[in-house]
Amino acid sequence: MADRDGNRQLTLAEKWAIDAMAYNSGTKVKTGKQPCNGCMYQIKGDALHCGIYTKERKPKPVLFGHEKCPKYREEK
């Protein structure tokens, strides 16, 4: 299905083909994990809240792993 400008959404197979071409051309892939893993305030099964952020959600930079949480404390 195309939008009003004539552009269409790529299929999953097309997206994978683009990814494969990028990897073959030497693209570096950056992967990471949620920084909350291993924190003593982490609530298992709840990615949006923890022992510090109980009433509001975690800030987006912390939630998506762009910044380390200032309240992070390693589990003992």
Rank of each mutant, 00 (worst) to 15 (best):
Y41V: 04
H66S: 12
A13P: 00
W16D: 07
A17W: 03
L12P: 00
T54L: 07
K44D: 13
K76T: 07
T11M: 07
L10T: 01
N7I: 09
K30A: 13
P61E: 08
K60I: 12
D19G: 07
K68R: 13
W16N: 13
Q9P: 01
W16G: 10
Y23D: 07
V62E: 02
N7V: 13
G26Q: 02
T31M: 11
N7T: 10
G51S: 04
A47K: 08
M40I: 15
A2R: 07
N37V: 12
T31Q: 09
D5R: 14
I52T: 13
T54C: 01
K44M: 13
M40W: 04
V62F: 14
T11P: 01
E74S: 10
N7H: 12
C36Q: 00
M21T: 10
Q42T: 14
T11S: 13
I52H: 08
R73N: 02
R57N: 13
N24T: 07
K33M: 13
L63E: 00
R57H: 08
G26N: 05
F64H: 11
A20L: 08
Y72H: 06
G32C: 03
K30D: 04
T54P: 00
G38L: 05
K68V: 11
C36W: 03
Y23G: 05
R73H: 05
G51I: 11
K60W: 01
M21G: 08
V29A: 06
V62C: 10
K30V: 14
G32L: 04
V62D: 01
K55F: 01
E56G: 02
D46K: 09
S25R: 14
G45S: 07
E74M: 12
M40L: 11
K76V: 11
N37G: 12
G6P: 01
K71W: 13
E75G: 03
T31I: 15
D46S: 06
K76R: 09
G38T: 06
K55W: 01
R73G: 01
L63V: 01
P35M: 13
K15F: 11
D46I: 06
M1C: 09
L63G: 00
P35I: 15
P59D: 02
R8E: 14
A2E: 12
L12S: 08
L10A: 08
T27W: 06
K58F: 01
Y72S: 01
G45R: 05
K60R: 10
F64W: 12
M21E: 11
G65D: 02
E74Y: 11
N37A: 10
D19F: 15
C69T: 00
Y41P: 01
E14V: 10
D3G: 07
M40H: 02
H49L: 00
K68Q: 12
M21R: 13
G51D: 03
R57W: 04
K68L: 13
E56C: 04
M21P: 00
P59G: 05
I52G: 00
C39Y: 04
R4G: 09
K58L: 14
N37Y: 14
K15P: 00
A13S: 10
E14N: 03
P61I: 14
F64C: 09
G26C: 04
N7Q: 14
E56I: 15
L12Q: 04
G65Q: 05
P70T: 11
A2N: 06
I18K: 08
P70G: 06
I43C: 00
C39H: 03
E56S: 12
A17G: 09
A17V: 06
G45A: 10
K55P: 00
Q42I: 15
G26R: 01
Y23R: 09
